[in-house]
Computed example of a mutant assay.
Amino acid sequence: MNNNLVAIVGPTASGKSNLAVDFAQQYKGEIVSADSRQVYRGITIGAAQITQQEMCGIPHHLLDIADPTTPYSVVLYKKKADATIRAIQKRDNIPLLVGGTGMYIDAVVYNKNYPEVLPNQPLRKKLEHLSTQKLFTRLQSVDFGRSRTIDKNNKRRLIRAIEINEATQKPVQPPQQQPRYRSLLLGIRISKEELHTRIEQRFHAMLSNGHLEEVQRLHDHYHVSWQRIDEIGLNYKWVGQHLQNNITKQEMIEKSITSIKQYAKRQMTWFQKNKDIVWIENYKQAETLIQNYT
C-alpha cells in the first residue's frame, strides 16, 4: 500500500479545487476536502463548494458530513480524514488533501493530536460577550504559545482555545508527532490584485446562485440559530445580519467581500509560516513536482 499524500493549499478563490481535479484525473487521485465550512450540510453556495459537474467524476470526500447546528472540531475532522486517506491508499489511489483551513491541513500532514474536550456551553456564553481583543489577551495570559499561532481575529477559535485550557489546565498546542504520510505540500501563489478580483466576482456569483436563500434555508430547514450562523462567520454572518434586517443589502455585500479578503490574508499568513510548502504559479510547475514525487 502506498503512503503518499499530496496537499494543495492556498487562500480562498485561488483555484485549488480545479487544480486538484486536473491532478486527480491524470494521477488516479481522490480528493479529501480540508475546509472547515464545506464540512457542514447545507453550507455550499456561500462556501464555494465544488459542484457535481466541476468534480468531473472524481471522488470527493468530507463534504456535507456534519450537523451545521454544532461546531465540528479538528479532532473529529482528523479522525475522519485519516480513515478516508487510508481507504484511498488501499485502493492504490493518491489522496489529494485540498483546502484552505490551515489547522485541518496541519493536523493531518503532521499528525497533530489535539485534546478531546467537550463544549462548555456556560463558559461559551460568558466568553461570547467579550471582544476578540479581550479574548486574545486572556488566551495570552493562560497559554502564550497558543496565542502566537492562533488567528487573533477568529472569535470562535479564541473561545475554543480558552475552553480547552480551562478543561485541561495545560497548553492547547499539541505535541509534534511522527508524520503518518509521505507528503508533498503545494501552495498556490496568486497576486493580491488577482485574488481580490476573484473574491469580488465569486461573491456576486454566489448571490446570483441563491446564497441569501441558502442562509434562510439554514435557519428555517436545518434549524441553525442566527447566533450560530454568526459563528460560522465571513459572508454567512453578514447575510444572516441582512436577513434579520440589521444591515442593508449593500452593507451586506461590502462587509462580506471585506471579510473574505481579510480571511484570505489570514490564510496566507498561516501557510507562509510553513517552510515545507512548495509554492507554484501554474499547472506545469505543479505537474513537474508531482511527477518527481510519484
Rank of each mutant, 00 (worst) to 15 (best):
D143C: 10
T149G: 11
L135P: 01
P122D: 07
N282R: 05
T132G: 00
E30I: 05
N292S: 12
K125R: 12
G187P: 04
R160G: 13
K237I: 07
D22I: 11
Y72H: 07
H61Q: 05
N111V: 00
G15F: 11
P119E: 12
R148N: 11
I159L: 07
T101H: 07
K170H: 14
V109F: 03
N3V: 03
R138Q: 15
A264N: 12
R266E: 10
Q177E: 14
H196D: 11
V39N: 00
L289S: 06
K249R: 06
V21P: 07
G100W: 08
A20D: 06
A205Y: 05
G99R: 01
K284V: 04
Y236R: 11
E54V: 13
Y236P: 13
L76M: 14
V74H: 11
R157P: 15
I65S: 14
Y283F: 14
D82A: 00
E116P: 11
Y104K: 01
S73W: 01
K80E: 01
W279T: 08
V6E: 01
L118H: 06
R91D: 13
D143V: 13
Y293N: 10
K79A: 07
L76A: 08
I280K: 01
H223I: 12
E251Q: 14
A107I: 02
Q177G: 08
V98S: 00
S225Q: 03
Q173Y: 08
N154D: 15
I257L: 02
Q178G: 00
V224P: 04
A13D: 14
V239F: 01
N111F: 02
D22W: 14
H129N: 13
L212Y: 09
V74A: 10
L243M: 02
I159M: 14
D230A: 12
E231P: 08
P175S: 06
I8N: 02
S33D: 02
S131F: 13
S131V: 06
V32N: 01
R124L: 13
T12Y: 05
K80L: 01
Y27S: 13
H60V: 09
A7K: 02
F23S: 06
S14P: 03
M55S: 14
T70N: 10
K170V: 08
R228G: 04
N282W: 06
I88G: 03
L243H: 00
K80N: 00
R217D: 12
S183E: 04
E214H: 10
I229T: 09
Q285R: 01
Q169G: 09
E251N: 05
Q38F: 00
E231R: 09
R160C: 06
N120L: 12
A107K: 03
A286I: 14
L185Y: 03
N4H: 13
R124H: 07
N18E: 15
P171F: 05
A47R: 07
L243C: 05
L19D: 01
A20W: 00
N3R: 04
L5R: 02
V39H: 03
G210P: 05
Q201W: 03
K237Q: 13
Q291E: 13
Y222A: 13
A66G: 06
Q227P: 10
I31K: 02
I257T: 02
Y222V: 12
M103V: 12
I280P: 02
Y236D: 11
N165E: 09
S256M: 06
R266H: 10
T269Y: 11
I150P: 00
R202N: 12
P119M: 09
Q53V: 15
V109W: 00
L127W: 07
V74D: 07
T269E: 15
A13R: 09
R91T: 09
P175A: 07
Y27G: 12
V224R: 01
